[in-house]
Simulated scan of single mutants.
Amino acid sequence: MTDLDLIDRKIVAELMRDATMPISQIADKVGLSQTPCWKRIQKLEAAGVLTGRVALANPDKLGLGLTVFVGIEVPDHSPEWREAFGRAVDGIPEIMEVYRMAGELDYLLRVSVSDMSAFDTLYKRLTDALPIKNVTSHFAMERMKFTTAYPVDTRNR
Score class of each variant (00 low, 15 high):
28 D>W: 02
108 L>A: 12
25 Q>C: 10
20 T>C: 11
122 L>V: 01
21 M>S: 13
154 T>R: 07
144 M>R: 12
127 T>L: 01
96 M>L: 14
111 V>L: 03
88 A>G: 09
103 G>R: 02
75 P>M: 08
110 R>P: 04
17 R>G: 09
84 A>T: 09
124 K>R: 13
135 V>N: 02
153 D>Q: 08
30 V>M: 09
79 P>Y: 10
119 F>E: 05
124 K>D: 09
30 V>S: 06
1 M>Y: 12
6 L>S: 14
37 C>T: 08
96 M>F: 11
54 V>G: 03
144 M>S: 12
40 R>H: 04
105 L>W: 10
89 V>H: 09
42 Q>L: 14
63 G>R: 10
4 L>N: 09
124 K>P: 00
121 T>D: 13
56 L>C: 13
154 T>W: 02
139 F>E: 02
99 Y>H: 13
41 I>H: 08
102 A>L: 10
107 Y>D: 01
18 D>R: 14
69 F>C: 11
138 H>V: 15
132 I>K: 00
112 S>N: 15
9 R>K: 15
98 V>W: 00
22 P>M: 09
21 M>N: 09
144 M>H: 05
112 S>K: 05
117 S>D: 07
111 V>P: 01
68 V>E: 10
1 M>H: 14
37 C>D: 07
57 A>E: 14
93 P>N: 06
151 P>L: 06
103 G>E: 01
43 K>W: 01
111 V>A: 01
2 T>C: 08
10 K>F: 01
119 F>L: 04
42 Q>V: 11
35 T>C: 01
146 F>W: 14
36 P>T: 07
135 V>W: 04
78 S>E: 10
31 G>A: 04
124 K>A: 06
39 K>T: 12
104 E>S: 04
70 V>N: 11
41 I>Y: 06
138 H>Q: 12
114 S>P: 00
128 D>R: 13
14 E>S: 14
110 R>A: 11
19 A>R: 06
151 P>Y: 05
102 A>W: 14
47 A>Y: 08
156 N>T: 04
93 P>C: 02
101 M>N: 07
19 A>T: 11
17 R>Q: 15
32 L>T: 12
53 R>A: 12
79 P>M: 10
125 R>F: 01
90 D>S: 13
141 M>F: 13
95 I>D: 03
132 I>E: 04
93 P>H: 06
131 P>Q: 08
107 Y>H: 12
101 M>Y: 03
